[in-house]
């Protein structure tokens, strides 16, 4: 199979939008909840679009346009989106009206933009793309499932280009709900926030930010299953654990959520430097999209910001060549991704 490249990757987040300024000058947050920092939408959207589209849809279309512009790919073969909660703002408004006013006089506008696939279909609608179109909504691995689907179709030759996105919006009231179940907020670290990441993947480009070497996903794996999967993944990438430049995990400082990450590192990668990203990009069901985005830019620029390192293993002295990305939730859903720097980097 020909290699698959991440040709471009863009984000809107707690950091400066549509920019890699966070690599030199990250914005730090010490609050339990903050919304993403939006770019100047006027540069990207007509006034009518700005009025009509919900926030998550604006962010989705702007990040998609940005990777389209950078790559010249305007009609990808596939559009794949992961979203944990979908278009929450519209869902909430419809639900609130239903609970407050009962079952009469409900406006169709919020319902029409409330389904999870509103985002991916908007991207198809705006880019006039009739190809494969799908949305995944599965907790913390929603984005990973979208990426795995793209990866699968590259492998079987169905597609040569793909737009893969991770999107979530977090309203103040939904933050309260997620705080109630201990997912974010409370007295523990981490800023509950939102996600908007677009990746443009291509088999055709000879260049880009990095190569997507391979990936695996597992559900409730036994230790043996995890070990076998890890071996097969590293074998496929022709890597040994020691040869990895670093492992990027989703640790956030929240003890219970971090425990499986710490166990995983101690058991399989005790000698490999470890990286984190949620301290800058926040907590969200689709936060793992920022791991891929951030890792791709670190590999492209040949350097990893100091603030990303955690754990006892010191950084390697040479520029990063290969990164393993681990995303897990509740020790149940697991996603493992290997990215590699391109020659000359």
């Amino acid at each position: 199979m020909k290699p698959v490249y991440i040709q471009a990757a863009d984000q809107i987040s707690l950091q400066a939008p549509l920019s890699e300024a966070w690599m030199k000058d990250p914005i730090r947050y010490d609050v339990p909840y903050a919304r993403a920092v939006d770019p100047d939408f006027k540069q990207w959207l007509t006034p009518a679009e700005s009025r009509r589209l919900g926030k998550i849809l604006k962010r989705a279309w702007v990040t998609a346009q940005s990777v389209f512009r950078k790559t010249g790919v305007e009609h990808p073969d596939a559009i794949l989106v992961g979203t944990g909660l979908g278009c929450m703002e519209n869902t909430e408004r419809f639900l609130e009206a239903l609970c407050r006013d009962g079952e009469s006089l409900l406006s169709p506008t919020h319902f029409m933009q409330s389904t999870h696939n509103t985002i991916a279909s908007l991207l198809a609608l705006r880019s006039h793309t009739h190809g494969y179109n799908i949305t995944y909504s599965h907790k913390d691995v929603s984005f990973d499932q979208a990426l795995l689907d793209a990866w699968t179709q590259f492998r079987i030759g169905n597609i040569r280009t793909a737009l893969v996105g991770g999107y979530d919006e977090l309203t103040p009231s939904y933050f309260t709900l997620l705080e109630r179940i201990g997912y974010m907020g409370g007295s523990q670290p981490g800023t509950g926030s939102e996600t908007a990441v677009a990746l443009l993947l291509s088999m055709e480009a000879q260049q880009g930010l990095c190569e997507l070497v391979s990936m695996r996903m597992l559900y409730r794996p036994t230790e043996q299953a995890l070990q076998e999967t890890l071996h097969s993944l590293l074998d496929e990438a022709q890597l040994t654990p020691e040869s990895l430049s670093a492992v990027m995990t989703g640790v956030s400082g929240r003890e219970a959520q971090d425990a499986p990450y710490h166990r995983f590192i101690q058991q399989w990668f005790p000698e490999v430097p470890t990286l984190r990203y949620k301290q800058w990009f926040g907590l969200s069901y689709t936060a793992s999209a920022y791991a891929v985005y951030a890792a791709a830019h670190c590999l492209d620029q040949g350097f990893i910001p100091d603030g990303m390192y955690y754990g006892p293993t010191p950084p390697r002295s040479e520029p990063p060549q290969t990164l393993l990305l681990l995303n897990q939730s509740e020790d149940k859903e697991y996603s493992l991704i290997i990215l590699r720097a391109l020659c000359g980097h």
Binding site: T115, N117, I134, S142, L218, Y219
Partner: peptide, 16 residues
């Protein structure tokens, strides 16, 4: 899934 045992992979497509 969990009602029946331990599936090796689970996913949730949501396209209305």
């Amino acid at each position: 899934a969990d009602h029946f045992g331990r599936f090796g992979f689970v996913a949730t497509p949501s396209t209305a």
